[in-house]
């Protein structure tokens, strides 16, 4: 069970909002890069987010670049899962590859600051502040298995290959 506060974002939050190209020189210095996570969408996010919190977004979260640094710095900031109406393809894959859960659900009813409880195995989000329950879509099997192992590298290290 994951527990934390919701940080609400709108539609079309791009990888440039999360970790812009102008900070490319920090990509080999991840702790420094992580201090700027989501800076161009909400400059206060990095200083307010706590371990366990959730990013709750609208549609097409993570569109744009293939930079895996985007989900990486989100994970480093302590975010335990991303909830969104939809997520861009490469970002989706990258997040799962890093062991960061991405949950597709209708996020309209969740407000900034709501206390949430997420049950990954049951597929439910409990908005404690609202007293509402939501369900999220099941990941494709291959992604579930990768997520279960904590990411793509540990998965391949365990199985030595893709096992569908």
């Amino acid at each position: 069970m994951l527990k934390g506060r919701a940080f609400k974002f709108g539609d079309n939050i791009s990888t440039d909002h999360i970790t812009p190209g102008r900070l490319a020189h920090l990509r080999s210095n991840l702790p420094e890069l992580a201090k700027h996570v989501l800076e161009d969408a909400d400059p206060t996010f990095a200083s307010r987010v706590k371990a366990g919190d959730f990013i709750v977004a609208g549609s097409n979260f993570g569109l744009g670049s293939s930079r895996e640094h985007a989900p990486l710095v989100i994970k480093m900031a302590g975010v335990s899962a991303i909830l969104a109406k939809s997520v861009a393809r490469i970002f989706f894959r990258n997040a799962i590859n890093l062991g960061l859960p991405v949950l597709i659900c209708d996020t309209d009813g969740i407000n900034d600051g709501d206390e949430l409880e997420v049950d990954l195995s049951k597929g439910t989000v409990n908005d404690i502040s609202k007293g509402q329950k939501l369900t999220f879509g099941r990941l494709p099997d291959v992604m579930l298995k990768i997520l279960d192992e904590g990411g793509l590298l540990p998965y391949i290290q365990k199985y030595g290959d893709f096992k569908l």
Binding site: S66, R67, E68, P71, I90, R93, N94, N97, L98, P140, V142, G151, L152, L153, I156, D161, F162, L164
Partner: peptide, 20 residues
């Protein structure tokens, strides 16, 4: 198609990838 660093690292090593 574009992918992230982990996916490509695995392609570097195995010469294959999963695709929907």
């Amino acid at each position: 198609t574009g992918m992230g660093s982990s996916d490509v690292a695995i392609v570097f090593a195995l010469g294959k990838t999963w695709l929907r």
